[in-house]
Design a protein around this nucleic acid. Structure first.
Length: 476
DNA sequence: GTAGGGTTAG
């Protein structure tokens, strides 16, 4: 059946170039992963000792493969391998890898596994270093496990280890995120008792946490207290408090604090993040005029707005229906040279789509293309998506082709491509669908699995021979 | 460690 082979084409041939490219790479790392894995199976007692005798290259692909081999029945071994890998000098786990491990071993749902790992180290008399504990703490952090992280900290003396301030900060961050400020506060005090002084990071975490639970006065108090403890608050600490004041307190008080920062200057000088955060808060309260005042104020202070500042203001103005003012703002910041017109108008396109003024968004977008102003990835993606959802899939495809012409396709992801292809197929635009599929193949953009199913389902229903012919030619 | 509005691949 042609449909069946088409399904195979859709799912396989679009990735074909990719996989061929990686074959060599995979072949070498697969053996590494295999070596590590089989060593662990053969030496189930103190796997760490045996792992260090394995002569194999350690990289993220290899780590991933080992973890996948260990799922789901050898989770404990998998995590021990992960921790061991994190200790090797030639390799460092990225944040992505920590997330990966958490997902694979479902650490959030099975927090007791943290306990099991440490217990296994103790029973087998493994060498446990502070770094070992750090990797385990990082796993707890990724999984959002505050209690378990604290428990890891508490067990360190058993291995003759002492926690450092980085570790305390990890645990404090977790309790702050949970809103348990009593525990966070106890931990901060405990640091002082064991000669580990809370640092800027500790204080910023605490100020943010206190604001999040509505304890604004305590956050103020802490900012004052940190100075007494020899840690002079900087712009980050002030900005964290200022954000809280904006959300919980009065505008007057917020402006007063901003004023203090400007006057004190030096390390306390408000930066673009400080001002943008204030602008955002004013916009959310619906006082966009005040937000525009902050823009003038920051410029007067010598701090240039960036794309985040401008897009925040554009969003605020548009959501109040004041699109005219948004255009004026763009003219102003572009003239000042702080933000490119591409960034500004892209933000406006996005804001217009969000307030459901699609026609205007599309018109502006076309004007940008006509004038050689390059739209950013979000503006392109959002507009194509909107056109698809509104049943204007051909318009969406035309836009896609124009974006391609000016070389801005790189930022459009697989989701948008898949959506566009599905809709083109469903509405029987065979020529366009084939063009898009070819383009995806050239750019090695994978089709989402769910989209493959939808396309095949459509083909089975419609029996569109043209489309089948067009699509199946691509693979050759 | 403080602001936002989607991503890559690992």
């Amino acid at each position: 059946m042609p449909h069946f082979s088409l399904a195979r084409f859709l799912s396989l041939s679009i990735q074909a170039k990719n996989s061929r490219l990686f074959t060599v790479h995979l072949a070498t790392t697969a053996t590494s992963a295999e070596r590590f894995y089989s060593h662990m199976l053969q030496n189930p007692n103190n796997i760490e000792r045996s792992l260090s005798t394995v002569k194999a290259q350690l990289d993220s692909t290899c780590v991933n493969q080992v973890l996948n081999r260990c799922v789901p029945s050898q989770s404990l071994m998998g995590i021990r391998f992960f921790v061991w890998a994190g200790l090797q000098s030639s390799y460092r786990h990225s944040s992505f890898m920590y997330n990966n491990a958490c997902e694979l071993f479902k650490i959030k749902r099975n927090p007791s596994i943290v306990n099991d790992v440490i217990e296994a180290y103790r029973k087998e008399g493994c060498i446990v270093s502070a770094k070992t504990m750090k990797v385990i703490l990082n796993l707890c952090e990724k999984a959002g496990l505050a209690d378990e992280a604290l428990w890891v900290l508490r067990r360190m003396p058993e291995f003759s280890l002492r926690a450092d301030s980085v570790m305390y900060n990890v645990v404090i961050r977790l309790f702050c995120e949970k809103g348990n400020m009593v525990m966070a506060d106890n931990l901060m005090k405990e640091m002082g008792l064991i000669d580990l002084y809370p640092n800027m990071i500790t204080y910023v975490l605490m100020i943010k946490g206190l604001c999040n639970v509505g304890r604004l006065e305590d956050a103020y108090g802490l900012l004052m207290a940190m100075r007494r403890h020899g840690c002079t608050p900087n712009a980050v600490a002030y900005s964290a408090l200022l954000d809280g004041v904006c959300r919980l307190g009065s505008s007057e008080r917020a402006l007063e604090l901003l004023d203090d920062m400007e006057k004190v200057g030096g390390d306390c000088s408000p930066n673009v993040v400080t001002y943008t955060s204030v602008i955002q808060n004013f916009c959310e309260k619906g006082t966009t005029i005040e937000a525009l005042g902050i823009l003038d104020r920051m410029e007067a202070y010598g701090c240039a707005p960036n794309r985040v500042t401008v897009s925040t203001l554009i969003k605020g103005l548009c959501s109040e229906g004041n699109v005219e003012e948004a255009y004026k703002l763009i003219d102003k910041v572009v003239a000042a040279g702080s933000v490119s017109s591409g960034d500004c108008y892209s933000s406006l396109v996005v804001a217009l789509v969000r307030i459901k003024r699609h026609m205007e968004a599309e018109k502006l977008f076309r004007k940008m293309l006509a004038n050689g102003v390059k739209p950013d990835g979000l503006a392109c993606s959002l507009l194509i998506k909107e056109l698809c959802l509104e049943g204007q899939v051909l318009d969406g495809f035309c836009l896609y082709e124009e974006i391609e012409k000016i070389g801005c396709l790189f930022s459009i992801d697989s989701d948008i491509h898949s959506m566009l292809l599905v809709r083109l197929c469903q509405e029987n635009h065979s020529v366009e669908a084939a063009k898009l599929a070819r383009c995806m193949q050239e750019k090695r953009i994978r089709l989402k699995a769910s989209s493959v199913d939808k396309i095949v389902e459509h083909l089975n229903k419609s029996g569109d021979k043209d489309l089948v012919t067009h699509l199946s030619r691509i693979g050759r």
